[in-house]
Design a protein around this nucleic acid. Sequence first.
DNA 1: TAAATTTGTTAGATAAGTCTAAGTTCTTAC
DNA 2: GTAAGAACTTAGACTTATCTAACAAATTTA
Lengths: 218, 218
Amino acid sequence: MHSYTEENYLKALFNLSADKGEVSANELSKQLGIKMPTVNSMMKKLSVKKLVHYESYKPLRLTEKGKKEAGLIIRKHRLTEMFLVQKLGFGWEEVHEIAEQIEHLHSPNFFEKMDALLGYPKIDPHGSPIPDKTGKMEWIKYEKLSSCKEGDTVRLAAVIHTTDDFLKFLNLRELSLGVKLKIKTVEKFDGSMTVSHSKKGSDTLSHIVCDRLLVEKL
Amino acid sequence: MHSYTEENYLKALFNLSADKGEVSANELSKQLGIKMPTVNSMMKKLSVKKLVHYESYKPLRLTEKGKKEAGLIIRKHRLTEMFLVQKLGFGWEEVHEIAEQIEHLHSPNFFEKMDALLGYPKIDPHGSPIPDKTGKMEWIKYEKLSSCKEGDTVRLAAVIHTTDDFLKFLNLRELSLGVKLKIKTVEKFDGSMTVSHSKKGSDTLSHIVCDRLLVEKL
DNA sequence: TAAATTTGTTAGATAAGTCTAAGTTCTTAC
DNA sequence: GTAAGAACTTAGACTTATCTAACAAATTTA
């Protein structure tokens, strides 16, 4: 079994290496808020445990074993978030911090029960995929709202970079997963978009916002 | 805030000092499975934090502050147990271990939500009282089954020394909280009792078993 | 009450995870 | 292509929670 601390390193590596598959020690250090030398020695430790490929002055990479372990932690995190929203009535902006703690519990039964009670969900409350029991995770190929064109009609499918603040911003505008949006105008000079949605009339969203919203074209 | 470790010491002190109000370092050491010198130094540390009254070679006592903190941890533990049984469908013999982990979570909201969802329960699945939000706890004055007499009719109200094995033993005999029992015979030589209960006919229970069952006389 | 046993304390070691300071290697910019 | 800066590594210190070994006090027992 891995320590609470090790699990956090694995999770951070997994999240950071989503695209490139490689992570610099520096990125990892910043992500975790832990100083470089500490990260360095932990990487050596995880390397001995065959969870990370470590070579001096080279970027870091999770091993297959490391990916699996990390995937399983993220599975617990996302199942928990779903549970908190669906069964305990939390808002999607409130669940991250609690899930950060619960993801480290050692009790297969507990997560098994949550999973069953939720009907084996495939995504968490923010639309991120929940890894399966082998730690494997697959993103459905959504588009960024920012890459859509005037006149497109889309369904909001997922939110990335889910900080509390950003989620509260979306709450205020009643932008929740599943809402249908019609893109009315796209501004050339700053990439901001005016979109309308059924309930709430229309909103203007900055490019940064549109970049964080993943949508499905209808 | 206190560490995970400190919380476990507080909880153990609280549980051990239920009756006398005093605990020997030796008892505490055995209870926690931690060696005496370690316990000793932790007691000094908790004493500095004003959670424990510590004097060389004297029994240990929680301060008022210590009792409150401990009570709040036990509150979280018992609320969690109730939640796991009532909302996740666990058996009363399965929940202790999971609650041992969840009790250390830092999230007032989480426990608040559970409490509300359960309808502010006063007892846990084993009949033990759940401390209130100030950490105060009161045992309802139940009798031990072992102190009842032939002919008495009683309701099973709580179980003490709730090990997994003992709870499974009770499961097999369908002895759950609330069942009505009629005491048919009490053996003089070993204190064992034969009791009958509605569903299951009669059972013979050893003195040790009867000593762990708290009942309400009807 | 004196010896034996149990209980409690002190001292010092160890492991995990963190840090700062100092040195190395790699990358970038001129 | 070298100098400057960024990224990485090494060395050594600190904290928390644990241990063992050795010693001291209290309690039990004979």
